[in-house]
């Protein structure tokens, strides 16, 4: 494991498989400010390289609209190659589906119920 950073709503690190992980804390309510803090941390850690991103939302309690829009923006798309979102709780499944369905992310984005399957899919987007 490389450097790891903890922000208000998540823990981030770059795995030795080249895939970046963002794991949200249980009960996290993600606002725009939280999304920006998480994104800033990601930008510092990624060291200028666009990578596939694994986002674990199982503990997430809410993700407000401005935060969804920021994650789905073109700016965000420029710093990652694909996003796999793990959603194996009812709430995270709803959040994930709305994110994919309504926010129109600009990079390949897919929901998964398990980490292994998600990582396998993300490997296709390693540069």
């Amino acid at each position: 494991m490389f450097d790891e950073v903890t922000v208000r709503v998540a823990r981030l690190w770059l795995g030795d498989d080249g895939i970046f992980r963002i794991v949200h804390f249980p009960g996290s309510e993600v606002s725009l400010a939280d999304a920006q803090e998480t994104m800033d941390a990601y930008l510092r850690l990624r060291d200028g390289v666009s990578r596939p991103l694994l986002v674990d939302t199982q503990g997430m309690k809410s993700l407000d609209r401005p935060a969804r829009a920021m994650y789905a923006s073109e700016e965000a798309a420029r710093v990652a190659t694909a996003v796999a979102i793990i959603v194996d709780t009812p709430v995270s499944r709803v959040l994930g589906n709305f994110y994919i369905g309504l926010a129109n992310p600009h990079i390949p984005s897919q929901l998964f119920s398990g980490q292994d399957e998600a990582l396998e899919w993300l490997k296709r987007f390693l540069l």
């Binding site: 309690k61 009812p90 709430v91 995270s92 709803v94 959040l95 709305f98």
Partner: peptide, 13 residues
Amino acid sequence: NSSFDAVITGINI
């Protein structure tokens, strides 16, 4: 994280 929470989340969104 219940289904009921999920429904409320969906309605909120």
